[in-house]
């Protein structure tokens, strides 16, 4: 299915260029080791961004992502203390995430409330719940956690894909199929493109809304699982602000914030660009960490302006 590949192509070009800049500046930067690290470090964020991408494509927004990541972590750590296997608690939390998302979607559609407000409430609710579970950082002690961390797929050039990166790719593959090979995916694009027309064309608006937020919740919960395993702990402040990073990754990945235009794989490259910027600045060593956010901000600006131009080209309306 040919869609507007232009923004994604730009994203990939930016990624390659940044990577090249890193290679020119620092020895050993241009390696599969760095690439594997970026993927490993940002896997949880990219997973959450994949879910956010669906929500944004449908014309909505989900602010509860970061709190979901934190909540999943503390609950898993708590259950770990009760002797649960992390896979069992992960399964429970992923179901919880999907259910929580579905509730948000239902409220948004049924009560006709802006998704911003509903998911903002979700943000507060889940963050508060984190503190109800624990005020401190709790460790995940189950042996599975270290087994999980030990899994790695070697890459040519000495690097490797860690288990979290592998999980992320699996999540991405499923998402690509959902987006581009199911009628639900087509409905999401239609709804984000023009809600009224979509409804007239027979798109089930309520079911699609509920499903898309459920999917968003599921992916952010899965991101939370990966984050908990990656850090082998649950911390009530974990994932603070991750929703904004996820949205940034989605936008950098070429998805229009107003919905309807974008590709699911965009979230991968958007998330990797954010990770790459952080890595570049860390490599430098002398630069203040604040530059990570500043560079990300500048890049976002550039992308938004570029997208604006793209949207203009899609509406020739009065072209004579």
């Amino acid at each position: 299915m040919k869609r507007t590949w232009l923004p994604l192509a730009a994203t990939i070009a930016v990624f390659v260029a940044l990577f090249g800049v890193g290679g020119a500046l620092y020895n050993h930067f241009l390696s599969s080791l760095v690439l594997g690290d970026i993927l490993d470090d940002n896997a949880f964020l990219i997973i959450a961004a994949i879910g956010a991408n669906f929500v944004i494509l449908s014309g909505g927004i989900d602010l509860s992502i970061g709190s979901m990541i934190g909540f999943v972590g503390v609950v898993m750590a708590k259950l770990d203390a009760f002797g649960w296997h992390p896979l069992a608690s992960a399964a429970v939390m992923i179901v919880f995430g999907a259910g929580f998302g579905a509730c948000q979607g239902l409220i948004i559609d049924f009560c006709e409330i802006q998704p911003f407000i509903v998911t903002l409430a979700g943000l507060f609710l889940l963050r508060g719940a984190c503190f109800m579970v624990t005020l401190d950082s709790l460790p995940l002690r189950h042996p599975f956690v270290s087994d999980f961390a030990a899994v790695a797929l070697p890459l040519p050039g000495g690097g490797f894909l860690a288990s979290s990166a592998l999980a992320m790719f699996a999540a991405l593959a499923v998402a690509v199929v959902i987006a581009h090979k199911t009628s639900f995916g087509a409905n999401v694009y239609a709804m984000g493109g023009d809600r009224t027309s979509a409804a007239l064309m027979g798109v089930p608006i309520r079911a699609t809304t509920v499903k898309v937020y459920a999917l968003g919740g599921l992916y952010s919960a899965f991101g939370g699982v990966i984050y908990a395993l990656y850090t082998s702990s649950g911390y009530p402040l974990a994932g603070s602000g991750a929703e904004l990073s996820a949205i940034a990754a989605v936008v950098l990945g070429g998805t229009l914030l107003t919905g309807g235009i974008g590709l699911v794989v965009g979230a991968l490259f958007g998330g990797m660009i954010l990770g790459l910027i952080a890595t570049l600045i860390n490599f430098n060593g002398s630069l203040n960490g604040a530059w990570i956010m500043i560079s990300s901000g500048v890049l976002l600006f550039v992308f938004i302006v570029m997208q604006r131009a793209l949207v203009g080209s899609l509406t020739p309306r009065s072209a004579s």
């Binding site: 040919k2 869609r3 009628s183 239609a190 023009d194 027309s197 064309m201 309807g260």
Partner: peptide
């Protein structure tokens, strides 16, 4: 008013609901 979705491809606009 054309009640179709401008951001979808022509194919998608024609096929939506009966894919």
């Amino acid at each position: 008013e054309v009640n179709l979705v401008p951001t979808l491809t022509v194919t998608e606009n024609l096929a939506l609901g009966r894919l």
